[in-house]
């Protein structure tokens, strides 16, 4: 029971913050590390495999693309979000998380049709990644040109 301070509108946020159950930081970090590391190690496996036939750079791109495809299929089967429930950033930050972010809205909004549903909503979550990524790549390249680094 709260006796020391009166709860008011002003201090309510602090009061709630202190009362809130906290996420278990160590557990979250442990699973993020294990799952994230495993996805990257699997990616490394594909790189090793593809570099038998392709150049290093192509092998790397193909490996990432394979991971994207696998994550898309896992999303379709409703498995990827189960991993995300405990892995958190471990399944969000790898490229597979990007794939999940593209596929899950596509799947969800299919009921609104292929044009306005799948087509328009596909980048609901992942859109910011493409938009910001392309913008920053152009800016960085222009800055480097202006500075004469290139």
């Amino acid at each position: 029971m709260q006796t020391e301070h009166k709860i008011t509108k002003q201090n309510y946020k602090d009061y709630v913050f202190n009362k809130m159950p906290k996420s278990s930081h160590w557990k979250n970090m442990f699973w993020a590390f294990i799952v994230g590391g495993t996805i990257c190690a699997i990616g490394q496996g594909f790189i090793e495999l593809y570099s038998i036939w392709f150049s290093d750079q192509d092998a790397s791109i193909l490996a990432s693309s394979t991971l994207v495809l696998i994550a898309a299929i896992m999303t379709g089967f409703g498995v990827y979000d189960q991993i995300g429930r405990f892995a958190g950033a471990g399944s969000t930050i790898p490229i597979t998380g990007f794939s999940n972010a593209v596929v899950s809205p596509a799947l969800e909004f299919r009921t609104e049709g292929y044009i306005y549903g799948v087509g328009a909503k596909m980048f609901l979550v992942a859109g910011p990644v493409i938009v910001n990524g392309v913008t920053i790549s152009v800016i960085v390249a222009l800055i480097c040109m202006v500075l004469g680094v290139l």
Partner: peptide
Amino acid sequence: GGAICTLG
């Protein structure tokens, strides 16, 4: 890879 995800 694990370290980057853990940082996230």
